[in-house]
Structures are given as C-alpha cells and as structure tokens.
Design a protein around this nucleic acid. Structure first.
Lengths: 155, 155
DNA sequence: TTGGTTGCAAAGCGTTTGCACTTTA
DNA sequence: TAAAGTGCAAACGCTTTGCAACCAA
C-alpha cells in the first residue's frame, strides 16, 4: 500500500532495529519486555500506515491480549518516543513506528471517501513555523498537518 | 484575547451579518430559525477562538437548551458552512464562525500547557498542497494544520 | 396544521482506571 | 520476591440517537 514513488516512503527504516531498540529502551526505564509489547511492536513493524488501537488489537496473532493492554502499551511506546500518534481526521488515535532518532517527521494524505492513506515525505513548514514562533513569542513550536482529498479510485 | 498585531486577526468580519445570514440560509433549506440556534450563533459571534460544544452550552444566556440541541445545531451550521470545525489537539471538536464566502481559511497556535489559542492569518501551504495533489492523483485536496508550543506565560 | 425541532434519557464509542492476579527480572 | 504488567469490568467524556412533546412557518 505504501507508495514509494512520487515523494512518498514506507518507513522501512523503522522496521529493522525496533525490537532490540524496544528492549534497551525499556531496560533504561525499569520497564519490562513482555509478550504483548513485543506482539504490538511486531504488528506496527508490518504496518505501512498508522494503526488504531482497535486495528492493532485485531491484528495480534491470537488476539492474545486485552484491549486495555494495547492502550497502555501504546502510551508507553509513545512516551519512549518509539511510536508517533496521529489523528487522521476521524478522532481516532492512530500510531506509527517512529525512528528512534526522530528523523522521520512526516504527514499523511487521507481519502475522504475510502480512508486510504498515502505517506508523505516532504514537509515545507519550517519557515512558516519559525515565523509563527517569532511573531507569537511561543517556544518549542511544532505542528500537526494532514491532507484530505479524493483518491484516484474514489473520484 | 485575540491578538491583532503580528499577523493575527479576530475574525470580526463574521460577526456582523451572521444572524441575517443564518435566517436566509435556513429558509433556503426549509429549516427553522429557533431560539437555541440564534443563541448559539450569538455566543459564537462573541468568541475570539473556537469553542467546544460544552463551552457553548455553558455560555448560553440561561443555559436554556439541551446539550444535545447544541450538538445538533452545530452540525446544521456546519452543513450550512456557517461554522468551521477544528480539532486543537485534545480530540474535542471546536467550532468557529465562518465567513459565508469561505475566505477565512486559517490555523491556530495552541499552548501545550495552558491551552491558550492564537489565531493565525497566514497560510503558506498552497504550493505544498498542489504538489501533494499532483503527485498522488488525489483531487479536492484540503488540509488541517495546527501549531503547538509554549506560550510566553508558560515558558 | 404539520413537519422540523427540542428535551430527556439512553446508548454508543474510544479510552481510561481500579483492583486483584500474574509475570518479568 | 518485589515491582511492573495484565485481565477484567466498570467508569469516563464526548457525542449520537429514539421518541414523545413542542413550536415555527
């Protein structure tokens, strides 16, 4: 599903070292490497697009853990910066594996009709964002940006 | 609260003709001009920033209508393009009066700590958005963009 | 009069939480 | 074994909906 031409990518870089990464990050925080956490990470590694908690739970090998555990694990992974949270417009939190070095800032293009998602590499907003920060006096400014449209099949 | 210097504005243009506008738009759609709808519109006209359904309800003169009616009215106003929906990052829908001609596309800067909101005039994304549309084959592309940071008082 | 609108209450949905039990280290 | 993690069930907050009563046109 990931479109690799046309300036999009598949976040393949995140998929290789995440398990070892998870283990070491957990140990650093006195957290434990458990079955559910590995399973959730495994699901996210295969996902070309952000997944909701429900989708992750449904994709678990034998639905082997409680939905509440999925939520708790995702919160943990988010705190460890191993996962990034998105809102693709429907108010449901979706999660995507994140490069540990945080160099994969990106946005999405979502079909308003069928909810298909295209991952976008590019982000033009640095200059705009710096202007916003300078004019407002705000610091540590970041942004959320998602595009919406009609995909070729739904037009 | 609206910051009018530094490239921000207060959306004053929306405040003048909205009631007559509402009446005529409603008539066009065989809808009725009721007390709750006028009251909600009056609240929105005074608001410098997007309001949640709960905030609107709390601001109604005598809390005179049911929360469910606020939700239903906001859906109607949104369908009539008289109100614009925003998500400022906390998953709660917020609404702001919209110019009937739709010429007030804008974004917000939200304090991560105290939730203060700055209205932003500028939007740089046309070129970026056109590139996204061209590369993906999507049509009718729009975007959602909000900035987050620490406001001067919270730093 | 009549069909759109409202109030009320209940339900829906994603998410969070309390608590006893289980598991990792 | 001790602290972290889990399952289960209940609760939560925002939002939607069914239905009978109400009211603008």
């Amino acid at each position: 599903m990931a479109v690799d031409s046309h300036g999009t990518h598949n976040h393949g870089g995140c998929r290789t070292k995440s398990l070892a990464e998870l283990a070491s990050r957990l140990r650093g925080g006195e957290r434990r490497l458990t079955g559910p956490r590995q399973a959730i990470l495994a699901v996210l590694r295969e996902a070309p697009h952000p997944l909701s908690s429900k989708e992750i739970h449904a994709a678990l090998p034998r639905r082997e853990c409680d939905p509440a555990t999925v939520y708790r694990s995702l919160h943990l992974l988010e705190k460890l910066n191993m996962v990034q949270r998105f809102d693709l417009g429907d108010g449901v939190a979706r999660f995507e594996l994140q490069d540990p070095d945080g160099h994969d800032h990106h946005h999405h293009l979502v079909c308003r009709h069928c909810a298909a998602v295209v991952e976008l590499d590019e982000c033009d907003l640095d200059e705009f964002q710096q202007r916003v920060a300078a004019h407002s006096g705000f610091t540590l400014v970041s942004h959320r940006l998602e595009f919406f449209g009609l995909c070729p099949r739904c037009q």
